[in-house]
Simulated assay, not measured.
Amino acid sequence: MAARSAAEQGRAQERHAAEALAQGRELDASWKAYRTGRARAADLRERLDTNTQAAQAQGAHLNAAAAEVARRTAALGTLDENEFPRAEYAREQAAQAYANLIGTQNKTRARLDELRLLIARREGSLDGLPDGASPLGTPVSGRPN
C-alpha cells in the first residue's frame, strides 16, 4: 500500500509539475503578447500623432487655397470683357513681328555666308604678291597716296 500511495503521490507531483509548466508557458505567451501589443499601440499612437499633424498642415493648405480662390474670384469681378481680344491681338502682332525678325535674320545670315564665300573665291583666284610688293590700298612710307 505504501508503494501505491508513493506512486499516486509521484503522479500527483508530476501532474502539478506539468500544470505548473503549462501555466508558465501560458504566462510567457501572455507576456509576449502583452509586450507585442504595447509596442504596436506605441507605433499606432506615433502614426496617429503624425497623421494628426499632417491633417492639420493639410487643413492649413486648404484654408490658404480657399483664400486664394476667393481672392481670384474677387479679381475676376473687375475683369474687362474686352481685354482678352486686345491681349490676343497684341500677342498675334508680337508673334508676327518676331517671325519677321527671324526671317530678316535668316536672310542676313545667308547673305553673310554668300559674301564670305565670294571673298574666299576672290582671295583664292589672286596670284601671290612678289616679295617687296604691297597690296593695293596699303600706304607706302615716304610716298603720298
Rank of each mutant, 00 (worst) to 15 (best):
A55D: 05
L79I: 08
A66W: 15
A54K: 07
E88F: 12
G37T: 02
A66D: 14
N106V: 00
A39Y: 02
G37W: 01
R121W: 06
Q53R: 10
A64K: 15
A120D: 11
L62G: 05
Y89G: 07
A75I: 02
G103R: 13
A94W: 08
T108Y: 08
L48I: 06
A95Q: 14
A65V: 03
A75E: 11
R116H: 10
A110W: 08
A99L: 14
A57P: 05
S125M: 00
R109D: 13
D113P: 05
I102Y: 11
A57K: 04
G77N: 08
A75T: 02
A57D: 09
A65I: 05
N51P: 01
D113E: 09
R47Q: 06
A57Y: 03
A99R: 15
A66H: 12
R111V: 01
A87M: 12
D43V: 10
G124D: 00
R91K: 06
R111Q: 03
D43Q: 11
R109S: 06
A94I: 06
L115N: 07
A110K: 02
Q56F: 00
Q105M: 07
A87H: 03
Q96K: 13
E92I: 11
L62V: 09
T50V: 10
R109W: 09
A67M: 09
A64S: 14
R109F: 10
A99N: 14
A94G: 09
N106P: 02
S125K: 05
S125P: 00
A67N: 15
V69C: 02
D43R: 08
R109V: 10
Q105V: 10
Q93P: 02
G77E: 13
R40T: 06
V69M: 03
E83K: 03
E92V: 11
Q53P: 04
R116V: 11
G124P: 00
A70I: 05
N51M: 00
L112D: 09
E114P: 02
Q58K: 12
A99D: 12
R72Q: 05
A75K: 02
T52G: 12
Q96L: 12
Q58V: 05
G124C: 00
L48M: 12
G77K: 06
L62H: 04
N82G: 14
A64M: 13
V69Y: 03
K107P: 01
G103E: 04
Q56L: 00
Y98I: 07
N82Y: 08
L117D: 02
A67I: 11
E83N: 03
A74W: 04
A94N: 11
E83P: 05
N106H: 01
G77W: 08
E114Y: 03
A74Y: 06
R47I: 06
A39V: 03
A41D: 15
T104I: 07
R109Y: 09
R116C: 09
E68I: 02
K107S: 06
A42F: 09
L118Y: 04
N100T: 15
I119A: 00
L79C: 07
T50S: 13
E81R: 10
F84A: 12
R116T: 12
A95K: 13
R111L: 00
A55R: 04
I119R: 03
A39L: 07
H61G: 11
N82S: 10
K107L: 14
R45C: 08
G103Y: 12
Q105K: 12
A42V: 07
E46V: 13
R45P: 04
E92K: 13
D113C: 09
I119Y: 00
R47C: 04
N51H: 09
R111A: 01
E92P: 01
R72D: 03
N63V: 15
